[in-house]
Design a protein around this nucleic acid. Structure first.
Length: 856
DNA sequence: CAATTCGCCTGTGGCA
DNA sequence: TGCCACAGGCGAA
């Protein structure tokens, strides 16, 4: 194999058009790089879309694990004991660029025989020996397969042309796209253009078709006992697989036979060995296997049970906290859906907890099969067991296929940008993705990857702004005080991708803040902070963030709507622009995140300080033009009833002043502001209602309150003018009375009056106070012997009596404290009623107190 | 394993 | 009993 730098570089300067493979050549997709401990070598794992199989190609570049140190080669020799020396392959001087000090440094690169020699060897590894001898080490915490991937310039998720030993990137940027990139980035210099071309070529290539399936297994555990995958004593009694072309359950014969079941296939097995063998055979026909918690349950249980029964070659590789497949890609959706960035930005917070039941309910509107509270799987009759098992696999498969199969596309995109395998991206959070992206760029440029201490030592860890909220490290955004009332024709202007724009425009990053140059010390973007910013152009993060932002705004958002492209292409670019949004949204946050290896509090507080200055000066500008700013939050301005030309004029002025884009986002037919920040309701021209922050939309309030609230919104969205408003007002009164009466007469299901609150800590860790959901959770443990863990959502009901709350499982209708619920109804409604000059109690009694006159 | 701060709400628990 | 600071949860950006 040869992957030389020229072929790697060519990928950054792709030739145009897509190259078709010639004889003997195949186009394979790089899935991951793994390390083979026996061969002591990296192995490239490729997927062949023609055969649908994985292909393994051993590294032939003789790349070795290494670290960098300021010890000389002689020092290394001295420090390392005789018994360890055979593991050192080479120690030689290398030159690196040290961005923190803006200078070239000469360090010793120590290559070793295997990754454990760097970190993890017994009794002592190289990095510990060097540190104990008083030397510094760098890049000693990077996993070997990552190190290899970065150095060789490989991009997981990308197609490669493979012929014999030759592995070459497939060029993928079309000529017109290349021209477009040059047009957008042409004036920003060679460095930016190069990054843009590289990113764009990565983001245009579609993902290969892969055979996908979801699996789920059931174990004969007694009721209330969670079977342990580390001690798989109980037999597997059911195993289901669901894919596009398969819906099958393998059942263990135990007494009665399963009846015939119409919409899926049932295979009965005389013994568990045959069940496991055939199930694993089924699995092997698919490249991507989805599970829900398969890392910690299904796959370890399956693999260990198989081993116990003497079945070899399961193809499952167990690691401490994950399970991988030799010939496939295992995606554990539990881990993926627990990822906050995925939850918030991809799925818009539409699910609450992270169990299969909760995620499915939120995203699919479907639930697991109900088998009763005792959850006694072992004693289910066979056909019920089969249905239960396949339902879980079905739900898992449906979740994986949400967003028009976009989940896998999303993972491929993140995989390419972050240089991490699908398995890695799907199991790690956004900070790991960004870290990996930065590391790969540093390696590519032969820059030294700094240690976290280097960053804070040379550039400072102190912050100078005081956070509003006690316990926070620095000051964040400004929220303008809203002007309460109903405002017609309210325009919303916002700074598009504000923080990324600031990072780009003022070039803020851990690299540029408080740089070592005397000449830059005068370059202070804000008066309130002592930090200065480099103006000599060092650093790479501002360029990368700038490119990703501009690609998203100026290219992919447009392509996602471009009628000249077909639907599949538009879809792809929409996934791309959404993925970039996820990444960009987190790009500032990681600087303020202590565990991020490039943590930089000065950079974080500089970004928010500039943002405060920007919104403040935009408000001033608007007011100077005698426009009325009625609200604003972080990056937005709400302006009441201004002519469009004036808004455009404001945009131009702000842009000229600050150098970041202010854009008209939308115009509300009217917006209802209360005196509270982060609480409003806006109706757009087409009648769509935006509800922000209001109690009525919080997930933890009871459904009955939510229903009443949304009926009210529906009513309001119909009002176009003041007469219709008056009518709405009467209707709102009717709604309020209807629900208050329902509560008084106890006309509700227990489900409707449940509060659903997430348990964020272990039960025992709530020591300072005992919140109500914790009280309810403790009752669940005491009375029902249930186990609750962090992440569980507790459903509880307010009841009369001393305790005041009960888990819904233990409560009955007659003890529901209806007055408390009316109270909640009151505060929920009062938030909007205040602004409408209405009063809950009067409405509930059947008359209204005020009118809208004063606001209209 | 793990992005940030600002702001609202409810309830708890200490104290007078 | 009422007041108040704080804990905890959820949302906006």
């Amino acid at each position: 194999m040869s992957i030389n730098s020229s072929s790697v570089l060519r990928e950054a300067r792709p030739s145009f058009g897509e190259e078709k493979p010639s004889d003997g050549e195949r186009i394979l997709y790089l899935i991951s790089v793994i390390y083979d401990g026996e061969k002591k070598s990296a192995i490239l794992r490729f997927y062949d879309p023609v055969t649908g199989k994985m292909e393994f190609i051993q590294d032939k570049t003789s790349h070795k694990p290494y670290l960098l140190t300021d010890a000389s080669p002689e020092d290394v020799e001295r420090v390392v004991p005789e018994s360890f020396r055979h593991r050192i392959v080479k120690a030689e001087r290398v030159e690196k660029y040290d961005v923190l000090n803006d200078r070239k440094v000469v360090l010793t690169k120590v290559e070793v025989s295997d990754p454990l020699a760097i970190g993890g060897a017994k009794p002592k590894d190289l990095r510990t020996m060097l540190k104990e001898a008083g030397f510094n080490v760098w890049e000693a915490n990077i996993k070997y397969y990552d190190s290899y991937t970065y150095d060789v310039g490989l991009i997981p998720g990308m197609p490669y042309k493979v012929k014999g030993d030759q592995i070459e990137p497939v060029a993928s940027l079309k000529e017109d796209e290349r021209k477009e990139i040059e047009r957008i980035f042409g004036e920003e210099g060679e460095k930016v253009l190069e990054i843009a071309l590289e990113m764009a070529s990565m983001l245009r290539y579609p993902v290969p078709r892969m055979r996908c399936a979801a699996i789920d297994i059931e174990v004969a555990a007694p009721a209330f006992q969670v079977p342990s995958p580390s001690e798989p004593k109980r037999p597997i009694i059911a195993a289901a697989i669901v894919g596009d072309d398969v819906k099958r359950v393998h059942l263990l014969k135990r007494g009665s036979e399963a009846g015939s079941i119409a919409d899926f296939e049932v295979i009965q097995h005389e013994d568990e060995i045959s069940l496991i063998r055939e199930f694993i055979n089924d699995m092997k026909k698919y490249t991507v296997i989805y599970t829900f918690n398969g890392d910690n349950f299904d796959l370890p249980y399956l693999a260990r049970r198989a081993k116990e029964l003497g079945i070899t070659n399961t193809g499952i590789k167990l690691e401490t906290d994950r399970a991988l497949l030799d010939e496939g890609v295992h995606i554990d959706l539990y881990k993926l859906f627990s990822n906050r960035s995925i939850q918030v930005y991809v799925f818009k917070n539409r699910y609450l907890g992270y169990t299969l039941d909760e995620v499915s309910e939120g995203l699919l509107g479907e639930k697991k099969m109900d088998i009763g509270a005792d959850h006694d799987i072992a004693s289910l009759p066979p056909d019920k067991l089969a249905r239960y098992c396949i339902q879980d696999a079905k739900l898992t498969f449906s979740l994986a296929n949400l967003l028009d199969n976009g989940l896998l596309k999303l993972l491929f995109i993140f995989s390419r940008i972050s240089r991490m395998s699908l398995e890695e991206v799907s199991r790690h959070g956004i900070s790991q993705w960004i870290k990996s992206m930065i590391y790969s760029m540093y390696r590519r440029r032969n820059w030294l990857i700094p240690n976290s201490e280097d960053v804070t030592r040379t550039r400072g860890s102190k912050t100078f702004s005081r956070a509003i909220i006690k316990g926070k490290k620095y000051m964040g955004a400004i929220v303008l005080a809203p002007r309460p009332g109903v405002h017609f024709k309210a325009a919303v202007l916002d700074f598009a991708s504000m923080y990324p724009s600031i990072i780009k425009r003022w070039r803020i990053s851990f690299e540029t803040i408080n740089c070592p140059h005397e000449e830059c010390k005068e370059n202070k973007p804000v008066e309130e902070l002592p930090h200065w910013v480099c103006n000599k152009g060092i650093g790479i993060i501002p360029e990368v963030i700038g490119v990703l932002r501009d690609l998203r705004v100026k290219m992919y958002k447009k392509m996602a709507k471009d009628e000249k492209l077909n639907e599949e292409e538009r879809n792809w670019f929409d996934t791309v622009q959404n993925s970039l949004k996820v990444l960009l949204n987190a790009s500032y946050g990681v600087f303020g995140f202590e565990e991020f290896p490039l943590y930089s509090p000065p950079a974080a507080e500089m970004i928010t300080a500039i943002a405060r200055k920007a919104i403040t000066s935009a408000v001033r500008e608007a007011e100077k033009m005698s426009m009325s700013v009625i609200y604003g939050d972080t990056d937005s301005l709400f302006i009441e009833d201004a002519p469009i030309e004036k808004l455009k004029e404001l945009e131009r002025k702000v842009e000229a002043d600050l150098g970041i884009d202010l854009e008209l986002d939308k115009i509300y037919r009217y917006v209802v502001l209360s005196k509270l920040k982060k609480n409003y309701l806006g109706v757009t021209e087409d009648g769509h209602v935006d509800v922000k922050g209001l109690l009525g939309k919080k997930r933890n309030i009871p459904d009955i309150v939510k229903k009443a609230f949304f009926e009210t919104l529906d009513e309001l969205s119909r009002a176009r003018n003041r007469e219709e408003f008056e009518k709405s007002k009467e209707k709102i009164g009717e709604i309020v009375r209807k629900y208050v009466n329902r509560l008084r007469n106890r006309e509700f299901d227990m489900e409707e009056v449940c509060f659903r609150s997430t348990l964020n800590k272990k039960l025992g860790d709530y020591v300072k106070t005992t919140p109500q959901h914790v009280k309810a959770a403790r009752l669940l443990e005491e009375r029902l012997n249930m186990k609750v863990v962090p992440g569980d959502v507790i459903s509880y009901v307010k009841v009369t009596g001393r305790e005041g709350v009960k888990p819904v499982e233990l409560a009955s209708k007659h003890e529901v404290d209806v007055e408390k619920y009316i109270e909640i109804m009151r505060s929920t409604f009062q938030q909007i009623l205040d602004a409408l000059d209405l009063d809950f109690d009067s409405l509930a009694k059947g008359k209204s107190s005020g009118s809208l006159e004063s606001f209209l």
